[in-house]
Design a protein around this nucleic acid. Sequence first.
DNA 1: TGAAACCTTCACATCAATGTGAAGGCAAGC
DNA 2: GCTTGCCTTCACATTGATGTGAAGGTTTCA
Lengths: 130, 130
Amino acid sequence: MKIGELSRRTGVPTRMLRYYEEQDLLHPGRADNGYRRYPESAVYRVQQIRGLLDSGLTTEIIRRILPFLNEPDEIHLHPQCLTPELAELLEAEASRIQQRIDCLSRNRDAIRAYLAAVRSAGLYNVDSEN
Amino acid sequence: MKIGELSRRTGVPTRMLRYYEEQDLLHPGRADNGYRRYPESAVYRVQQIRGLLDSGLTTEIIRRILPFLNEPDEIHLHPQCLTPELAELLEAEASRIQQRIDCLSRNRDAIRAYLAAVRSAGLYNVDSEN
DNA sequence: TGAAACCTTCACATCAATGTGAAGGCAAGC
DNA sequence: GCTTGCCTTCACATTGATGTGAAGGTTTCA
């Protein structure tokens, strides 16, 4: 598909799709006239990139871990591709991600607990029609 | 405590602590000479702010939800303080946070699964001494 | 054939978070 | 008392992710 369709289907502006390509997160092919051609899988890929960016990861980190996230590539499954340094990077990144999850979970719980507490106090009626 | 101590204890530069104050995330008192005075609780508060910023929330969102996160203030517990609009904001923010958690969890799992898969393939020895 | 809607690259602007430095007041130790 | 270090405010610079617009080629359709 062309960039416009990918943009419509993901809600991400074309400007950003070109930017992600510049950052080595996307690698569309090219048609004869120079237009970018994206595979179906790019839709999911873009959503994944957006989610990670929204969660505070930088394009640089995303670029590094992306090859190991969704591609069931035979290439990457060969153990010799996993140098100790790379394993360490992935471990480290997984734990930084875990830290974020913990922080977000705590705060989500706090918000929900607050809402529940106030509502159970009874004066506020959720179904108020006013 | 003074800003320098808070900075040392949290690892956040004084410049940033002043910035968070400007963004209404911190509200230190002032000593006679104009120096900022922070309560003990500011240490946790700053860590919480950092965690949320690292997780992709903006200072504006943090400012809005912060009053409902950790202060067991009697004030906020009165149901009449929870307007329907505010409840909606908190609900919406909680679900945006949940979305981040889901995205991060998926990707953390993918990284860990990849590491496990490659390692179980056996050629790569975690305890290699070379 | 010509208008509309797409695509290309290039470039400058913005916004939030952060870095950094200047110019000067206060405080603790020698 | 003077130096050293911490504090103050003010201000400009940078970085990463975006917005926006110009100038021009391509595809589609009437």
